[in-house]
């Protein structure tokens, strides 16, 4: 049962056309349904990016948020699908990605005679390090400046996709979005923060 269906069922159970508050139990059901209603996993077919572009975005996503001991990568979290879907709904965004990816490949071809995708991992991270440094510097080198806008977009959208996924939410330990009859703050959290602060003795 989907959340929408549940809400409709609850709404239908209310008397007449007048809206009324629903019970805590019903809210709990809605919450549980939301948890269960994760997107069905299946192979995603890109709607906007071509195969080379999509694979390049996958590689970028894997480098931006790589898998580690705690959690999977941005690819596992669906970042390439997210980027492709949004590009398919916005000419402006689509242009940023198609133009940015072509710019990146032309730079890589010029430097290494290979596209980003076919370059070595060291060459790939090398250019990303350079782009990252250029983004933070006041006057970016002329060779890199045209690609900084794209780099910013792919970074922020990849990170967004990762941390809004179940994998990312678990990674940072978000505990909320629940239904509770009482709100409690654990004493150990307060003590932890106080002890580490200059206010401990006051």
């Amino acid at each position: 049962m989907t959340r929408r269906h549940l809400l409709e069922t609850i709404a239908a159970g209310l008397t007449g056309a007048v809206e009324a508050p629903i019970s805590l139990e019903a809210a709990q059901h809605v919450h549980n349904a939301a948890e269960q209603e994760k997107r069905a996993s299946g192979r995603y077919t890109p709607k906007f990016l071509n195969e080379h572009e999509y694979r390049t975005v996958q590689r970028l996503a894997e480098l931006i948020v790589p898998a580690d001991d705690v959690s999977g990568s941005a690819v596992d979290a669906g970042a390439p699908e997210f980027i492709d879907l949004l590009c398919s709904g916005s000419q402006e965004l689509g242009d940023i990605y198609s133009g940015g990816l072509l710019w990146l490949d032309s730079l890589m071809l010029r430097r290494y005679a290979n596209t980003f995708l076919d370059a070595t991992p060291k060459q790939q991270t090398g250019i990303m390090d350079e782009l990252g440094a250029a983004a933070r510097s006041k006057d970016a080198p002329g060779e890199l400046a045209p690609g900084l806008r794209f780099f910013d977009w792919v970074l922020k959208m990849t990170v967004d996709a990762f941390y809004t996924s179940p994998i990312g939410i678990k990674d940072i330990g978000f505990q909320g979005n629940g239904v509770k009859s009482e709100y409690i703050v654990p004493a150990e959290a307060i003590e932890y923060a106080l002890k580490r602060s200059p206010l401990w003795k006051s």
Partner: peptide, 8 residues
Amino acid sequence: HKWPYEYG
């Protein structure tokens, strides 16, 4: 109560 990942 909706999660972000419930939307593409």
